[in-house]
Design a protein around this nucleic acid. Structure first.
Lengths: 195, 195, 195, 195
DNA sequence: TATGAATGAGCCTTCATTCAT
DNA sequence: GATGAATGAAGGCTCATTCAT
């Protein structure tokens, strides 16, 4: 009989509130007010304030990774896959800036929560990228001796920084426009020489 | 304010404490204990807990930028300048992991403090990189139509992600070893075609 | 209020729960779960949590006193009556230790509830004892100048302490075995000299 | 530098507050106000609210037992010792009714705190009484086959009940007046026959 | 009548900051 | 200047009670 939509409503409210003020500067009662419920109600669905953040993080990251996987599933060309990942990454940030803000900031907080608690979800995204890169190497499209792990982090870091600048900045431009140059530069950097 | 070393001692203690527990999970009394002084003494040098963080951030970022500027001052080749920046970035992270942890995490916090409070210092580092890239473009070493701002963020993001992974991870390898591949991939990505 | 058994079920559940955790450390929902009903249902039969305790107390004390009265009704000898009271007191404790625990502890709480709320029921038990003692005095079996009120409290206190020790202790012996020595010592203490 | 009188002041305030409202109906801030300090200050001296109660209990019980031991130390006659214990017990209750109320009520709470936490202090008082009774038996003043443990609990229970009635009642008489009859009845009950 | 999700007042505890010494 | 005891506002969480179903 417990409302199955409540947890989602609470998480969505939390995303907005945490994005606005940061996790530590948000009160549980703020999240409740934003969700249009009483503070006590939150504790019917989450044991602690921390759990809201961890759940939020896991859920969204899992969705995100699934979405990316789907988006590249039908594509054969590894290079094109990379282009799609970058485009999708920026598109998602643009459409969910509040979520982006929370994930990016709190992901870095690292401490407590994400060391372990969500290492799985984060590394899943890294795996998606790394898999594509390995695929490209095997297909001869990327440099044979490419250090995949390093390149993976570079691509993620590059996307993440563009996203962060946009999210924390004035957003006076379309982030999506950066997708093509980012992909191009990265791919040029990792491509096999004769390609 | 007789003792001119106190503020520095406090900041150094704060770096260690904040790196260990994060800003919000650190108490002012923790910083005091780490610095070997009484909690009240901190308030002779800093007005609030926040001010410790802001001061810390500004000071260290300023030092950092000056260091980087110096390191590339004597070098004419823009490509080599980039290689030096990457190498120095990783070297500094490796030598001051606690500081790195604080800067990286809190830089992302963005909110309150760094929106404005330290935008100047951060953007100074971006400027260093962007200047080198523009130099490279003018010299014909980098692509003529290179979107410098994007490339700047990409390089910073790539370095920052490598650094973050290393800092928050088990540190079971030398971060410096990543400098060469990172620089190489990036430079390949931004180089003028015939180079 | 259709179901006439519910209040009783709730009270019985409350006895077990309160005995286990104490009144203040028991939740209404604990009592509900123990009774196999929903928390809200309790409020169909009791106005507040306090009322459960007061009702429980009154009901059980009334039963208790009636039982004691019955047990000594057919006995003519006042001394034998005292022996029976002691034996019965210990027997009841032994058979209903959970109830005993609740009554003894909460009886002492005194505050709020029992100052007045249940003074009647408690004093009824004292009255039973006092009546027997007065009877014994009149019959010349007990000391003529016996301070009946004091003696009443002494006997009750003695029984109660034996019971408490047993209830809160490891219960590694039969409380009933103490009935004879307790009665004997008390009666020796209050008997008329020549008897 | 920490004020060595504060813990005592807090405990004394707690005694008054707990006596007035009971432990569970008292707020830490009530104790603070009664002590004339800020609520937070209490936590400089006690880790939790529970600790106040436990400390209070231990400290007072230890003092109490020491006082009783001293009072009978100079007396040779076991019977007279009993008389002194009873007189002192009532005198102390009369002089410190708030303390008495707290000890008596919370002693019965049994749960959590006093099962073990203070078993030592309580049993020390029982030991004092039991020792005197054994002494009396050996001296031939009390019945040879007297069940000392039972008699000990009886005497304690009798005194405690008189005290409780007085403390929780209207106190319209002097509790000390009950000392003589209580001692007399008890001693008559346990005395060797020919005495 | 029975349910249990929802409510929100209430309380313990923490900790940045102050200030008397 | 340096100290650290004291302050008290703030917030996470609990749980008795209500009420829509």
């Amino acid at each position: 009989m417990r409302d199955p939509d409540k947890p989602q409503q609470i998480i969505d409210a939390a995303i907005r509130v945490f994005a606005r003020n940061g996790y530590y500067n948000s009160r549980v009662s703020d999240v409740a007010r934003e969700a249009g419920i009483a503070a006590g109600t939150i504790y019917l669905y989450f044991k602690t304030k921390d759990e809201i953040l961890v759940t939020l993080f896991r859920e969204k990251m899992t969705e995100w990774v699934a979405l990316v996987r789907d988006a590249i599933a039908g594509e054969a060309d590894p290079l094109e896959k990379i282009r799609r990942i970058v485009a999708l990454h920026f598109k998602m940030i643009e459409e969910h800036p509040a979520l982006a803000e929370v994930l990016q900031v709190e992901l870095r907080q690292g401490h407590k929560f994400f060391r372990g608690a969500s290492a799985q979800e984060v590394s899943a995204y890294f795996d998606v990228i790394a898999d594509v890169l390995r695929e490209g190497v095997l297909a001869g499209r990327l440099r044979k001796e490419l250090p995949v792990k390093v390149a993976t982090k570079m691509l993620f870091g590059a996307m993440d920084q563009l996203a962060t600048s946009w999210v924390l900045g004035s957003r006076g431009y379309r982030l999506s426009e950066a997708a093509e140059p980012v992909a191009t530069i990265f791919l040029k950097g990792v491509c096999a020489d004769g390609v």
